[in-house]
């Protein structure tokens, strides 16, 4: 029994499975983004380039390790590891193979929200510790961005919890399963707000302000190379899995069995669809400037989020 639990944690649906999903979704994202732009995307590594993210990861691992002389060494070494570990940890809370997650407790939704905040904090520290001008600007922008999207995000994420009377992600999934409905059908506004906030959380166009290539090189990760950059990229991919898992669990029914299709397969299909929406959306826009983004978030997104909370409190969509 202990051996099975260890298997669950390490292999399926635990760390290994999730990391494979992360690489898979990076491929989905790159491929779809390329197709929208009339390109092929990854092509040669594995069938249709499906192994390209893994190849990139391995290549970065073997690259020269450059540490800027001025950097804060402790932070500089620690942040990439933490950045990769945090979404991996948070993913244990997500119900992947069954409506019940590996780790689940009342209030784990709060922990997810907290981990999103922590991710941004880590990004800030990453940029700050490398002591480069571009990194510093990138990290300040990242923190500013968090101030604008975190509040609507928090408000809206609470709505499914109110509806399900449970602060646990697994609880919300089970509530959807019991009522045979999807959160998206009850709270479409909430889903829209979450998608916009998640574009910002993942730093995708039009909110890729902290790492705007043409403005500040690579933003907060300018100074990271080799192993550390590989960890950052894996952390980013895991974050994409986490975000899409959260959207699927709260709004799209989560990991529920559908006739003969097992719950895990449904989960993969649904999250892949969410990733596809993200990568399609990021092909459609130009990048906002940081002041425009913050103003827009506070002016438009926050009232909408509040309206969603009010609607739920009035009993609509609950």
């Amino acid at each position: 029994m202990v051996a099975y639990e260890i298997f669950q944690l390490v292999v399926f649906p635990g760390a290994l499975f999730v990391i494979c999903l992360a690489f898979l979704y990076e491929w989905v994202d790159r491929k779809l983004f390329a197709r929208v732009q009339g390109r092929y995307g990854p092509l040669y590594t594995g069938p249709a380039g499906i192994l390209q993210p893994v190849a990139d990861f391995l290549k970065l691992l073997s690259k020269e390790d450059i540490v800027p002389r001025a950097c804060d060494a402790n932070l500089f070494f620690a942040v990439p590891v933490m950045y990769a570990a945090l979404p991996l940890t948070a993913l244990f809370i997500m119900p992947i193979a069954a409506p019940e997650a590996l780790v689940s407790f009342e209030g784990d939704l709060i922990f997810i929200l907290f981990s999103f905040g922590l991710m941004t904090l880590l990004i800030f520290l990453a940029g700050w510790s490398s002591m480069s001008r571009f990194s510093a600007i990138g990290s300040v922008r990242s923190a500013l961005q968090m101030l604008s999207y975190e509040i609507p995000l928090g408000l809206v994420l609470v709505c499914p919890a109110i509806a399900a009377r449970s602060l646990s992600v697994s609880g919300i999934v089970q509530w959807q399963a019991a009522n045979a409905t999807w959160g998206a059908a009850l709270q479409p506004i909430g889903l829209a707000v979450v998608m916009v906030c998640m574009l910002a959380e993942l730093e995708l166009v039009p909110f890729d302000i902290p790492e705007a290539e043409t403005e500040i090189v690579a933003g907060w990760r300018t100074e990271f190379t080799g192993r550390r950059l590989a960890l950052f990229r894996m952390g980013r991919d895991l974050e994409i899995v986490l975000v899409s898992a959260l959207v699927v669990s709260l709004y799209l029914g989560g990991a529920q069995q559908l006739w003969l299709v097992p719950a895990a397969a449904m989960f993969v299909i649904k999250t892949a669809a969410v990733v596809a929406v993200f990568s399609f959306a990021r092909a459609l826009f130009a990048r906002f400037r940081i002041d425009q983004m913050i103003a827009g978030m506070w002016k438009y997104l926050l009232p909408i989020a509040v309206a969603q909370v009010v609607l739920v409190q009035m009993g609509l969509g609950a």
Binding site: R35, V36, Q37, G38, R39, Y40, F280, A283, L284, F285
Partner: peptide
């Protein structure tokens, strides 16, 4: 959002890369 129509059309078309 004004590019969405063309983006959708592009998905069905063969990429122009050689």
């Amino acid at each position: 959002m004004s590019i969405v129509g063309e983006a959708l059309r592009q998905l069905r078309r063969k990429p122009c890369t050689v």
